[in-house]
Simulated scan of single mutants.
Amino acid sequence: MKYPPFIYEPDKSIGALAATESFFEECPDKKELITDLGWAYHSIGKTVPQTMENFWSGHFFPYMESWDELQVSFNLMMFGFYKQSFMSLRSALEVGMLSVYYNINDDGHNAVQNWYRSKDTWEANTPRSDKIWKILRSNENIASFDKEFDLKKQFDELGFLHNYVHTKGYKYSNYIGLISSNWQTFEEKGMIRWVNVYERVILLLLTLHLLKYPIGMIEFDWSSKVGIDNPFPVLNTFQVERIKKILPERHIAALEVIAKNDPETQALFTHISDLPDMTEDECEEQIFKLDQMSIEHGPGFIQWKQQELDRMEQHYPESRDVVLKRMKRLEAWATENDMMHPIEERSLHKDKRD
């Protein structure tokens, strides 16, 4: 395919990607940092409560949009589009803060509506940062933490990101202040700069979410109470460990104190911990029903079985007897209910029969 007289062409992006990946092979610590930060922010979304009242209301949209922007930013960086990657980091920061802003009083399903529906009114405009911080600081946890660690200053120091949006001169142009080719290329300085800002953005957003939802700092075996079908906005132990791995130690200590003293956090923790322990049979039945759903709405039993066998051998071979026994039950169910093949084949066969 012939293109207009463009210099920024897709083929050059492939070259930038290859050079970026080569850098990560030589510097795996950078790749590990990006991965750890990404997993930590992915985990924190679980602390935003999902209830019958707010489900599909849009209250979770700001967090999801911020997560999308972080991924887009990473992709742009990998292909050498550094200016645009910083622009996406700015969007991730701003919309990620809205996740806490709109849910600050636990009525995000109502508060978010005008903005979420993009109404053509001033109330629907994305709020300015001074208004956002005024609302954020109305939360006692955020206010006290901000007083000690100056979160607002951390946010203000990221203010330079808007310069990429408005192209404030050569430094914030597509050249990002470097003497380089006039097309997308791998630039180590640009990539290192991106990793630094990516880290600062995620740490700030993580901290704000944990201050609003301190239950995210509590390590507890929730599965012993609710099995694998956990309806509560809590994190598994490995997810808490991910977050603690990247947060400064002083921040961790302060957040743990806040979690111990936060009335709502302690009330929820007490409620869950006072529940009776799940029996092995109850846990097994949960897993069985979840597997049924996976088979019915996906690959069908035959493909599902092979996927599960591969996963079992790789991750938990010690559970072989239990898994094989469950598979035997599932095979009988799938045979009886015509769930052996993928949903597309089943739908096609059904249409032909009809």
Rank of each mutant, 00 (worst) to 15 (best):
R200C: 01
G216Q: 08
D321S: 15
G169H: 01
M52P: 05
V112A: 05
E94W: 03
I104V: 10
W67G: 04
F155Y: 15
M293Q: 13
N114M: 09
K289W: 12
W333S: 04
F186V: 05
M64V: 10
L348F: 14
R193M: 08
V201F: 00
F145I: 08
N139P: 03
I7W: 08
C27N: 14
R329V: 08
S138E: 11
L235K: 07
Y8T: 08
Q71K: 01
S13L: 15
R353T: 12
R346A: 06
L235F: 06
Q303N: 13
D68C: 06
F24K: 03
F60H: 09
F238Q: 12
Y170C: 05
W115P: 02
L161R: 02
S273K: 13
A267H: 09
F86H: 07
S144H: 07
K12S: 10
D150L: 07
Q292G: 08
E21G: 07
D310Q: 14
W194S: 00
I192T: 08
S181N: 13
D11G: 11
D321Q: 15
I135G: 02
S223W: 12
S129A: 10
L93K: 07
E123M: 08
S88Y: 01
R117G: 02
V165G: 00
L324P: 01
W122S: 12
K30M: 08
K168N: 12
R117N: 11
E280H: 10
K153D: 05
N114E: 14
W133S: 04
Y101Q: 00
L89K: 00
F232T: 10
S347N: 11
H297R: 14
L98Q: 01
S22P: 03
R320L: 10
E280S: 12
Y213G: 06
M64S: 13
I7Q: 12
R326L: 11
E241Q: 15
F60R: 09
K305W: 02
A254F: 06
L93G: 02
Q266P: 08
N261A: 11
N105G: 07
K260Q: 13
I44D: 04
F55G: 04
P263V: 04
L211R: 04
R353E: 15
L161C: 05
W183G: 04
A253D: 12
N230G: 03
E188K: 14
T51W: 15
E157F: 08
E25L: 15
M64C: 09
H209S: 00
G108M: 06
S129L: 08
I34S: 00
N174G: 12
L205I: 04
I135Q: 07
F301C: 00
V195W: 03
Q307L: 09
P49L: 14
P317E: 10
L208C: 08
T126E: 11
E318D: 12
M52K: 13
E344C: 06
G159V: 07
D310I: 14
I132A: 03
M312P: 03
Q314C: 11
K31C: 07
L205T: 04
R311M: 05
S66E: 05
S224L: 14
V201T: 06
K2M: 11
R346V: 06
A253I: 12
E53P: 03
E284V: 04
L290A: 14
N337V: 04
N75P: 04
L70R: 00
E157D: 13
I179N: 13
M340L: 15
Q306G: 03
H166E: 07
A92H: 00
V197N: 00
W222S: 02
L37D: 02
K12P: 06
G15L: 14
H315D: 11
I258R: 09
